[in-house]
Every structure is written in C-alpha cells, then in structure tokens.
Amino acid sequence: MTSKKSGGKAQPSRRRNSKPALYDATDAELKEFYEQMLLIRRFEEKSGQMYGMGLIGGFCHLYIGQEAVAVGVQSALKDGDKVITSYRAHGHMLVAGSTAKSVLAELTGRIGGCSKGKGGSMHMFDPKNGFYGGHGIVGAQVSLGTGLGFANKYRKTDNVSVTYFGDGAANQGQVYESFNMAELWKLPVIFIIENNQYAMGTSVLRSSSEVELYKRGESFKIPGEQVDGMNVLAVRAAMDKAVEHCRSGKGPYILEMKTYRYRGHSMSDPAKYRTKEEVQKMKSERDCIDQIKELILDRGFMSEDDLKAIDKAVKAEVAEAATFAQESPEPPMSELYTDVLA
C-alpha cells in the first residue's frame, strides 16, 4: 500500500468536512486557549500602536486574526517537539513560551529583546522552548523545518517538527523539494499552511493554479487536510490527528489552515486589494476569540466579568512589556561584533 515503488497509491487528501471535527476541550483548556489568543491579540495591537509611534522600525507583520492557528497547534505539542515559521512570528514565539517582554523588546531593538535587538520582528528564536525562528525569506524555513524533523528521527525520538508557512510560500520551489524528501524518508514533519488568503497583496485566487492548498502534497503521497483555522478547537483536533500520524513513524502531514489576517501584510500595507466589508465580515462572523468566548459563556463556567478580568490581566502584562521594551537600553556597540562566528 505504501510502497515507494511506482504504482503506489497516493493517500487521498481530505476536504474540510461541512461539520469539522472539534477538539473536546476541558473548561481549563478553553480558558487557556482564550487567554493565549487574547495575549497575542493585545500584544499585536500594542505592536501596531508602537510601530505607529515610530518605536518599531522596518517591517512588522501582525498576527491579528490568525491567533487560533498558533494556539491550537502549540497546544498539541510536547517537550522536544520543534517549531519553525516565517517572519509573521510574534504569536508563535509567545505560545512557544517566550515572554511578552522579550518579544516586544526585540521589536524595539533593545538589549532586553530575545536576540538583544539584533534580530528584530522577522528574526526571533527561542530554541530552549523548541522554537527555531522567525525567518525572513519566504519559504526558506520549510527546508530547515524538514531538517528539524530529520534530526528528531535520526535521534530516534518520537518528536515532531511543526513547519509553518503561508499561502504565498506554498508557491515556492523548495517547499516541494522538502515535501519530496520528507515523504521519501518518512520524516516527522507537520507542514502547516497558514492560508490567510493573501500573499502580500495578491490573493490565492490570483496567484495559485490549485487553490486547495492541502492538495499540494498529493503528488508526493503526503496526506493533507483543510481545517477551519478560525476555530481553535478545529485546529487542535486536526493537529492531534497529524501528530499521531507523525509520532507513529508514518511520515509527514499537511494541514491547510483556512485563516484570515485582519491587518495588512505588514504595517506598510495599505490593503487596497480587499474591501473593508470583507474584513468586517470575517471579524464579526468568524473571529477566533469571539467564538471561544461564546463557548465559554454557553458552558457557563465563567461569566462576562471573569472574561473581562482576564482581558484586564492580559492588557496589564502587555503594558508592562511595552514599558520594558521602551526602557530597556539600546545594545552596546560591542554587540555589533558578537555572535557572528563562534
């Protein structure tokens, strides 16, 4: 069945079900999802604000709207699993376990930042927590993530490598080179395609001949699924399945997360390629935080006031990080010459 010789049958890719599988979260887990998604949202709002004030330079890609993906994915992982992503990295850093202070101080280019202010928004790392960056070149992290998976397998662990990329990167050549090697050698790599529907300012419809991106692994025999990336419980349920597949040695798995970013590609994007109505419709009908909030209230284990208290605590954490990120000094000039070579 899974013979690599010619004639082997490709694993069928699965479309998103009309009724997607949802993770059966406990009350405590729901609360944690809510907190984490809210932390990313408030963090990114603050980043956007500080960018506007000129405190953050260069490029800054916000994750607002997509929070359910990073939160749901990370919740399915265990110690030793590895994660790598593109330049839209703040949210992934936070859920991997980095502090808001260290991420925000990196954005302001200060010594208190996770890379002493030498990396910036697009280049952040937290290897202790299994996070291998934060990479600035579209698609380049995909082969690196394949290498993280290779290392897991070589060391005979059952750890997985979660390799995120966007719908834009899904058209880069080395993604497919990586698919090929990952399936050929049965590497434990979960390729997460965060399909937020726009590659910078070009929609998937205008840039891709096959817009159902979960099918992109078919000619490599990698199973793929489309997931409602706006629903953290759908993300987690899909992840559980993919993780099980990888941990049991069956090779890579593709999850296409259908998601949406509310802000521009970067802070300098005027977003003329879509209508305000389109964005507003997603915000009001599909927002990942609102969905979980509703669920929590339905279950009744927390009240509106409890949720407001969480929001207040998250805002306080972000405010504290913002103060730190402005008060932490600039790195000394000697830092220019450190960490280039050992």
């Binding site: 082969s143 690196l144 394949t146 290392a151």
Partner: peptide, 19 residues
C-alpha cells in the same frame, strides 16, 4: 534528490539541533 536548496536547508535545520 537533486535539490540543493532543500538538502542544504535540511542540513542547516539538523545542524541547528546539534547534529
């Protein structure tokens, strides 16, 4: 496979973990 980008990248990823 004859795919320099990806196998150099794969080597890099593996090296980042200490291989």
């Amino acid at each position: 496979p004859i795919t320099e980008s990806a196998f150099v990248g794969m080597g890099l990823g593996a090296a980042a973990t200490g291989l």
